[in-house]
Nucleic acid binder design. Structure first.
Length: 465
RNA sequence: GCCCCCAUCGUCCAGCGGCCUAGGACACCGGCCUUUCACGCCGGCAACACGGGUUCGAAUCCCGUUGGGGGUGCCA
């Protein structure tokens, strides 16, 4: 590895606890982990919680548990960036003292106004560089970037990437609230933690020159850190994978029955391939073969079908007992949720399972009872179309996703339009369960979840139009 | 607008100047196995974005074009 010769590798994963662990972050974590384990170095964890507005303890816990589920362990105790705030401030004071940073009291409007007036590119113009602004309530601290020259990022994957310094504006490193921002906190902590390798998403490549400049100003020799910017994981349109493209959170896959080893194995194929071309292999072998320099430069599409294929393979390899133990909770969850409703209407214990079979059917495979279909979807077509549209429309943005809220959408509409409640819910029921009789619908819909519910409704809606 | 990155089958990965009539995996399509499905096995479809160079020889190197993406916050 380029830098850090002679010393052990120290990699880190630095998630910000502002949401669930995203697939892309998980892969970043994985690659850092693979590097550390392959090289026999350290894998450190740092929680970047400097955005007090959006960071929560719940997300911290969730990220920890997701990492654990994936089997990505770390060395030492996790570092909470917010606890280093004093260190960050200290570093900033030093920067100001040495003239690397200065206070600025320009408002957003003033900055934009001047940019518009000079007709140049948007961004800060260095207005306060020599105004000797004193710290105050509406004052931020900006880092002074060089006006000329180049800053070069040595990237293990991409080679040298050069940025003209003139395109770098004097960026804010301390908010007017006095809270240091990501870039400084990051640079200071990486220095303090003795990080030698940073593997992160390509979306951070453009901010790397700033990080480097900051690091140098902070007194680092500048060649003691190696970067590798990982290609993004993208959707079918080639854009950054986001919520609209399906499940983005790793714990979604966890709850949907994917095995951690299969998930990790699949993730490892996104941007990396073993020299021998074998894709399905145990994590231990991946650790052994992993090489940062051989990571692909181009973005990778997340392919659910391939993940599923991998998962199926891992499931087949499970000892039967383990498969049974792992599957049972999914059976139990559905039954537990529906049990109180079933208990009221079964006449024999054996009848329960048949009443909730639709909850175990794939959305596209659901079979429809002929009589129910004719009665509701054919003879009552107009109402069916109307109700399905109402349900689809209402469910798309429904929050929270609860039986009660679901009820309000359908029954609320029925009452408003004086449609008998029973008639109004029938099309939804048939679309969801395949029959016009069954246990209470809203609880079942809550259990099914938004995505699957909508899939079923839309399927029927298309079929009858 | 400006800066930066990327460019091989539908998708992921291989290929790092001759071994390429481009290989593997997923998906897809046939067939076999099989009570169905799945698995498995056999076979098939399918790509070097374009244009210039360099070279005896280019998917591989260089330049340009085009296309895609990322960044451009008092988010991280």
């Amino acid at each position: 590895m380029v830098a850090a010769r002679g010393s052990a590798i120290r990699a880190r994963f630095a998630p910000s606890p502002t949401g669930h662990l995203h697939i892309g972050s998980a892969r970043t974590a994985l690659f850092n982990w693979l590097l550390a384990r392959h090289e026999g170095g350290k894998m450190l964890l740092r929680v970047e919680d400097t955005d007090a507005e959006r960071s929560t303890r719940e997300f911290v816990d969730l990220i920890f548990s997701t990492l654990e589920w994936l089997g990505l362990d770390y060395d030492g105790e996790p570092v909470f960036q917010s606890r280093n705030a004093e260190r960050h401030i200290e570093a900033v004071q030093q920067l100001v003292a040495f003239g690397h940073a200065y206070c600025c009291d320009c408002t957003r409007e003033e900055v934009d106004g001047r940019a518009a007036a000079r007709g140049g590119p948007p961004g800060y113009d260095g207005h306060c560089r020599d105004r000797d602004v004193q710290p105050g309530p509406n004052t931020v601290v900006r880092f002074r970037t060089p006006d000329e020259g180049m800053t070069v990022v040595h990237d293990i994957i991409r080679g040298d990437v050069s940025f003209p310094n003139e395109t770098l504006e004097d960026f804010v490193i301390v908010r007017s609230t006095g809270a240091p921002m990501f870039l400084v906190a990051n640079a200071v902590d990486d220095l303090d933690m003795g990080i030698t390798h940073i593997l992160r998403g390509e979306d951070l490549l453009s901010s790397t020159p700033k990080a480097l400049l900051l690091r140098t100003a902070l007194g680092s020799p500048g060649d003691d850190l190696a970067f590798a910017h990982l290609p993004l994981i993208v959707n079918q349109q080639g854009k950054k994978f986001s919520k609209r493209d399906g499940a983005v959170a790793v714990d979604d896959y966890r709850s949907r029955g994917y095995l951690p080893d299969a998930f990790v194995n699949y993730l490892a194929t996104l941007g990396w391939g073993a020299p021998d071309g074998v894709e399905l292999r145990p994590t231990s072998e991946i650790v052994e073969l992993f090489d940062v320099a051989s990571i692909s430069k181009s973005p990778a599409q997340f392919d659910l079908k391939k993940l599923r294929n991998f998962n199926g393979d891992y499931i087949r390899r499970l000892p039967l007992d383990e498969y049974k133990a792992l599957t049972r909770p999914y059976l139990d969850d559905v039954f537990d949720a529906m049990a109180p409703l079933l208990q009221e209407r079964v006449k024999a214990l054996t009848e329960g399972p048949a009443m909730i079979d639709f909850l175990f059917t794939d959305d596209g495979e659901l079979a429809f009872d002929d009589k129910s279909w004719t009665k509701v979807m054919v003879n009552g077509k107009d109402l069916a179309v109307a109700m399905l549209d109402i349900a689809i429309d209402g469910f798309e943005t429904l929050a929270p996703w609860t039986a009660e809220a679901v009820n309000d959408v359908v029954i609320g509409y029925a009452d408003d339009h004086e449609i008998p409640r029973g008639k109004a819910q029938a099309p939804v029921r048939v679309a969801i369960t395949g029959r016009s009789v069954g246990p209470p619908l809203w609880e079942a819909i809550e259990l099914l979840g938004r995505e699957r519910t909508l899939a079923r409704l839309r399927r029927v809606r298309e079929r009858i139009s």
